[in-house]
Write a protein that binds this DNA or RNA. Structure first.
Length: 656
RNA sequence: GCCGGGUUAGCUCAGCCGGUAGAGCACUUGAUUUGUAAUCAAGGGGUCGGGGGUUCGAAUCCCUCACCCGGCACCA
């Protein structure tokens, strides 16, 4: 007998091997009908599974949030059946559920195109309408391999070989069609419903390895209800509207062109925004860091010493004299990182333990030859500016330095409007690395402890996790992941502990006992790539930047030319308060001007007509609002100037 | 880098099966002095991404290169 506890707390005994379906039927036929799966002790399972031990049982209906992944998973199977019935000979591989839907990878000589979607979706609807039950069978390894081999499904055979020996092989049938799958599934294909949509096709390597054949992946999404699907599609449209590449063009911030793949042409307004971010970061570093600047190009020998030449040569740019007759035809590497340069600065002159920690910061421009397919607007470029720093310290100072960096990172993110849903990941030693296991053991131990402390100090507000094998080649790292206004995650900051580079470069300090010691080096970035961070900010704010970041903070717009002199006066007074202001004296209707500056996302419009000129007031209209507020000029400007203060400056003023 | 799709005026896009280019916005000029998201009119602007091929004839078909987009792989 098994004892099952129901959600209402009732506990009943049933014979061994009874299935969820039998129990549901026993309770009521309507329950059995609307139940698509069950959860045993919180774990989803097939409703037809026999129950072998005592558990808490819940019947999951199609509307249950937990059913969503089942709907999507089942939809992936339906997709696979549809594709194989339309194009026999297409091999199936895997079809998992992902964040916003599902995909299925197929192998076929002729890739699919979105034009095939209509036919596939039609076939999927047929399969769903047929409403065949999902049934599960457990096959022996031999039988499964034989069956799939006979069907010409080579990829499935490979998958079977990869399944650990102690796991049984489950086959799910939906009518005649079947697939190897770990499940669980709903009771029948009809439960998928019609709120699904195929989204896009893409190439994807078999098992994620670029040495393997390329498969065709079909992405789709599915929801319990049509309204949810519609809402999701709407949300995608919204995300498209805040695409920073679109905003960059519309707001005249930057552009790219063919001659410079992956390098940004910053226009005046974009550069103003970019510089506002750097100016903010500089203020945040003042007092703790020394800002330096290391050369853009250095003899490649330095990169050989650091290990970058070995590790990343394919991803580096190098330059030499363009003259055929030049005496010095050495290769200079254009810096892909600032660290070797900073080590040279540290090494210049003898350092005492009393000098440590030495914190060298640089807003250095680095170049990396990113794979052509990786480039993406500002988010992935070949030339970018890092808010980089390297801290040279003693072992004893290491943990404190990491915590100090953490404090700075969190407070910077908060100032930019990223306060919640922060995740910090610890990436540990990769397979390919430099340095002894002992030094990695040590570095990882220190960082694990620091990570714990960070989580504790945040009151467990910050989530932490481990990324095994994802560390840099010279040391483990923390990765700071923030979440934007529409729920997307971005990895920005990083803290990397490095016991290797200082040693490779023979960097040392004189300890209190007069001996030479190798310092520990911490690499850290807060925004990471400032180009990328600018792109993230644009998408986060949908181009509607807070006043302190907006490149054009206000426009003074006249209604008639009678107000021209006054408008000039207003603009001048605003500039005296360090506001970034333009005057729009064109002979245009105020409607026209309002529309134009609103589209340009200017945060504040100061409209002046005859009335305002006579009373020395301005009519303020804020972006996103139709409301107008008439205020005396001085008060209006003072309030704007106050709002335009960067958050750190505001804090300092308030403290003073 | 790999797979697929794309590149037509400053921007957004049309141009069917081959017959040497079009719209709206923007721009320039003129008129309009206007009260909170587009005033009217006229005008200028493209060797259809580059190169090659097929053809009497190519924006259109084929090849190739570059760049862009969606994924994959990569991201010191």
């Amino acid at each position: 007998m098994v004892a099952l506890t129901f959600p209402d707390g009732a506990r009943r005994e049933y014979p061994d091997h009874i299935t969820g379906l039998d129990i549901a039927k026993g309770i009521s036929p309507s329950l059995a009908k609307r139940t698509v799966a069950m959860a045993l002790d919180g774990t989803l399972a097939d409703l037809a599974d026999p129950i072998e031990k005592d558990a808490k049982i819940e019947f999951v209906s199609r509307e249950d949030p937990r059913a969503l992944e089942l709907i999507r998973h089942d939809a992936a199977h339906v997709l696979a059946e549809a594709v194989q019935s339309l194009w026999p000979g297409t091999q199936v591989t895997i079809g998992p559920v992902i964040e916003n839907g599902f995909y299925y990878d197929f192998f076929r000589n002729q890739p699919f195109t979105p034009e095939d979607f209509a036919a596939i979706e039609k076939k999927m609807c047929e399969i769903i309408a047929r409403d065949k039950p999902f049934t599960k069978e457990v096959w022996s390894r031999e039988k499964a391999k034989q069956v799939f081999r006979d069907k010409g499904e080579g990829f499935k055979v490979e998958l079977i070989d990869a399944i650990p020996e102690d796991q049984s092989l489950k086959i799910y049938k939906q009518g005649d069609w079947f697939d190897l799958c770990r499940g669980p599934h709903m009771t029948s294909t009809g439960k998928v419903g019609n709120a699904f949509k195929l989204m896009k096709v893409a190439g994807a390597y078999w098992r994620g390895n670029s040495d393997n054949p390329m498969l065709t992946r079909i992405y789709g999404t599915a929801f319990a209800k049509q309204e949810e699907l519609d809402a999701y599609l709407k949300q995608l449209e919204e995300a498209e509207k805040r695409d920073h590449r679109k905003l960059g063009r519309e707001l005249d911030l930057f552009h790219f062109q063919e001659e410079g793949p992956g390098v940004v042409f910053w226009h005046a307004k974009g550069w103003t925004l970019f510089q506002a971010i750097i100016a903010y970061m500089r203020r945040r570093l003042a007092g703790d860091y020394d800002e330096v600047n290391a050369p853009q190009m250095l003899d490649k020998s330095l990169w050989e010493t650091s290990g970058h030449w070995d590790w990343y040569r394919e991803s580096m740019f190098a330059a030499q004299s363009a003259g055929d007759e030049a005496e010095d035809k050495r290769w200079f590497a254009i810096k892909p990182m600032n660290c070797p340069g900073h080590v040279q600065i540290f090494k210049h002159g003898l350092k005492s333990y009393r000098d440590l920690p030495v914190r060298l910061a640089e807003f250095g421009v680095v170049h990396r030859y990113e794979p052509s397919g990786a480039m993406h607007g500002l988010l992935r470029v070949r030339g970018f500016t890092q808010d980089d720093a390297h801290i040279f310290c003693t072992e004893a100072q290491l943990a404190d330095e990491c915590l100090k960096i953490n404090d700075l990172i969190l407070s910077v993110y908060a100032d930019f409007g990223f306060e919640s849903d922060l995740v910090i990941k610890l990436s540990t030693r990769p397979e390919k690395r430099v340095g002894s296991d002992a030094s990695w053991d040590h570095a990882e131990a220190v960082m694990s402890k620091v990570l714990e402390q960070i989580a504790q100090r945040s009151g467990n507000r910050i989530k932490t996790s481990i990324n095994p094998g994802e560390g840099a080649f010279y040391g483990p790292k923390f990765e700071y992941v923030l979440r934007d206004a529409i729920g997307r995650d971005w990895q920005c900051g990083t803290t990397q502990v490095d016991f290797n580079l200082p040693e490779r470069f023979d960097a040392f300090y004189i300890d209190s006992d007069g001996s030479k010691k190798t310092p520990v080096m911490v690499h850290r970035a807060i925004c990471g790539s400032l180009e990328r961070f600018t792109g993230i900010l644009l998408e986060h704010f949908a181009g509607h930047l807070p006043l302190w970041l907006a490149p054009k903070q206000a426009v003074v717009a006249t209604i008639t030319s009678d107000a021209d002199d006054y408008a000039r006066e207003v603009a001048k007074a605003a500039r005296r308060l360090d506001l970034r202001v333009d005057a729009d004296l064109r002979n245009e209707k105020i409607n026209y001007k309002v529309r134009e500056h609103s589209l340009a996302k200017v945060p504040a419009l100061l409209v002046v007509g005859k009335k305002e000129a006579e009373t020395r007031t301005v009519s303020i209209r804020r972006l996103g609002s139709e409301k107008q507020t008439v205020m005396p000029l001085d008060a209006a400007l003072a309030s704007l100037a106050d709002e335009a203060l960067p958050p750190d400056v505001k804090r300092m003023r308030q403290a003073a």
